[in-house]
Design a binder for these strands. Structure first.
Lengths: 146, 146
DNA sequence: CTCCTTTTCTTGAATGATTCAAGATCTGAC
DNA sequence: GTCAGATCTTGAATCATTCAAGAAAAGGAG
C-alpha cells in the first residue's frame, strides 16, 4: 500500500476547510478501501486523533463533500450500500463477488479510457464509463456453499 | 418496439407458474423499459386484465422471481432505485443522465463480450461485465438548469 | 491576537425502498 | 376433483440515508 498522502494538503487543494472529522474520514477511506459508511464511521471513531465522538451525520456530510471535490470516489454495486475509495483519477474498475460482496480493483482491459465511446449514445454527452465485473471471489470458490 | 412476446410461454419455459400478477408484471416491464418498482406497481394495477388489486409485495416477489429466472434484468445505477427491463441475453449497457436520471440503452463499443477479460482478475471468476455510462441527456443539455 | 461570517458538526427525527412474517389463495399434477 | 406446494395478501419492521435547526469551529479581516 502506498504511503498515506498529506490529507491536509489534499483538503486545502480542494478548497475545503480542514477539520478533524474530515481528516479522520479521509484517513479511514484511505486505510479501508471499499468500506461502507458504517465501517467508516467505526473507523473514524476508533481514530485516536479524534477524541470525542463524530456523528454519523458528519461522516455522511464529509463523504459527500469529499466525493463532490473528487478526493474520493463513491461506488455502489447493485444490492450494496454506498462504498468509498481514495483511488481516483486513474480509470480502474471493480470486481464484485456475487456470493459475499467482496470488492477488488481491476484495471480496464481495453485501455485508459475504456468503452468511453459508445456506439450509439442516443444524444447523451458521456463523461464517464463505469465498469462492474460480477463473479465469484477466490474464497467463495474454494468454499462453494455453507 | 418489438411485438409483445408470449409471456405465458416465457413463464412456462422458465418453469414458473403462470399467474395473473406475473403476466401483468412481465407485460408492464416490457411496456416500460427501465421503470422502477413503483412505476411498475402502478402499471400493473392499471392493467385491465388484472381486476382486483395486486399487492406491492407480490410485485416485488414477481420481479425477484423473474430476475432469478433470467426473464428480466435488474439494473440499479448509484443513487437510483431498482429498475427492470425485458431486454436480456444480448450484451447491452446503459447511459444514465446525471441530471434527471433518464436511462437509455447502448450497445457496447468493444464488441459482444465487452471488457469481459479483466487484465488482472485477482482470482475472481468473472461471469458478467456491466457497463454504466454517465453523462447528460439531450433534454438536460438544451435546458441546462432550472 | 480578536472578531465576524460562513461553513461544518451535533442532536434528533423523518423518509422511503425493500424485506420479513403468517395466513389465505391459487396453480398444476395426479 | 383433490392435494401439496408455490404464490399472493395484509400489515408491520428494517435500515441506509436524508432533513432540520441550532451549536461549534474554521479562516480571513482588522
Amino acid at each position: 500500500m502506498t504511503a498515506a498522502p498529506d490529507f491536509e494538503q489534499l483538503l486545502r487543494g480542494a478548497d475545503l476547510r480542514v477539520t478533524r472529522p474530515r481528516l479522520a474520514v479521509l484517513g479511514a477511506v484511505h486505510a479501508h478501501p471499499h468500506a461502507d459508511t458504517d465501517a467508516l464511521i467505526s473507523a473514524v471513531r476508533a481514530d485516536a486523533s479524534v477524541e470525542g465522538e463524530v456523528s454519523h451525520q458528519a461522516v455522511y456530510d464529509v463523504l459527500r463533500a469529499l466525493t463532490a471535490a473528487g478526493l474520493i470516489r463513491r461506488i455502489q454495486p447493485s444490492g450494496s450500500v454506498a462504498r468509498y475509495e481514495t483511488r481516483v483519477g486513474d480509470n480502474h474498475h471493480h470486481v464484485v463477488c456475487r456470493s459475499c460482496g467482496a470488492i477488488s480493483d481491476v484495471d480496464c482491459a481495453v485501455g485508459h479510457v475504456p468503452c468511453l465511446t459508445a456506439t450509439d449514445d442516443n444524444g447523451f454527452v458521456i463523461d464517464e464509463a463505469e465498469v462492474v465485473y460480477w463473479g465469484t471471489c477466490p474464497d467463495c470458490i474454494t468454499v462453494p456453499s455453507s
